[in-house]
Amino acid sequence: MALSIWEILAVFAAGVGAGTINTIVGSGTLITFPVLLATGLPPVTATVSNALGLIPGSISGAIGYRKELEGQRRRILKLSVGAAVGGLTGATLLLALPSTAFETIVPVLVALALVLVVLQPRISRAVQNRRERTGTPARADGGPLLFTGITLASVYGGYFTAAQGIIYLSLMGMLVDDTLQRLNAVKNVLAAVVNSIAALFFLFVADFDWTAVLLIAVGSAIGGQIGAKVGRRLSPTLLRGLIVAVGTAAIVQLLLR
């Protein structure tokens, strides 16, 4: 589909914005998806094009957070397996289910994730106190519960991706004893895995718009670097507040669609 110069600029700018916000928090799809729809792309084609275009942004953001990724190799490898399985499942469901299938459950998932993000410090203290009483050591990888949660969240991520990062952060913040910035770095890697797996699947079985993909890809790659520079400087409290603000906006937009 031929885009006007203004549509090209809008899609590129949306890609930059999505790459930036995805790296810091997540929910960048809520910027790019409406713009793609406004250019006239059908919903599924817009979703597929968006997933393909955001891959460079996810990779760029992960590279920007490479310092925080140090010492997390084992955790990342394990959780990436769940992300890959979930992402492929979600991509398959996107083509098999009606486009409205997840519309009811998505705002509920995001709202629950935000509650967990807000309560995360209190939950972490309670978990730590319980471990001290029972003498049970913390598991660096979050155990089976986190693996299952990441896999299920990745099914949603492969389907639509909006607010996927917020769900990841809420799960890891509750189940892993580590700083929010280091968990944010893991979130970026997992998002890159899901987007890449879903994109490889879409390349063979779904329609997409190459112009939109390239514009979002370049924009999101630039945004990923911007997001990494900004996000790494945020305090845990400020980062948590930004997550809640973006997540709340995501819920409102999803409910109004």
Rank of each mutant, 00 (worst) to 15 (best):
M1F: 10
L3S: 06
A10L: 13
G19E: 07
I24T: 01
G28M: 10
T29R: 07
L30H: 03
I31Y: 05
F33R: 10
P34T: 11
T39G: 09
P43Q: 13
A46P: 09
A46S: 13
A46Q: 08
S49Y: 03
L52I: 14
I55K: 07
I55N: 13
G57H: 10
S60I: 12
A62V: 06
A62C: 09
I63W: 13
G64A: 04
Y65G: 02
Y65W: 15
R66T: 13
E70C: 06
R73P: 00
I76Y: 10
G87D: 09
T89Q: 00
L93G: 03
S99C: 00
E103L: 08
L109N: 01
A113Y: 04
V115G: 13
V117C: 11
Q120V: 01
P121H: 07
A126W: 14
N129Y: 06
E132D: 13
T134M: 11
A140V: 14
A140Y: 05
D141W: 02
P144G: 04
P144F: 11
P144D: 12
T148K: 00
A153E: 00
S154V: 12
V155M: 11
V155Q: 06
Y156S: 12
G157H: 02
Y159R: 05
A163D: 08
G165W: 04
M174Y: 02
L180C: 01
L180F: 09
L180R: 05
K187E: 04
V194P: 03
S196E: 03
I197G: 04
A199C: 08
L200V: 15
L200N: 01
L200G: 15
F202N: 08
L203K: 07
A206R: 04
D207P: 00
D209K: 05
L214Y: 05
L214G: 02
V218N: 03
A221S: 12
I222P: 06
A228G: 14
K229A: 07
V230R: 05
G231L: 11
R232K: 15
L234P: 10
P236C: 08
L239H: 07
L242P: 01
V244I: 15
A245N: 03
G247Y: 12
A249T: 11
I251E: 11
L256F: 10
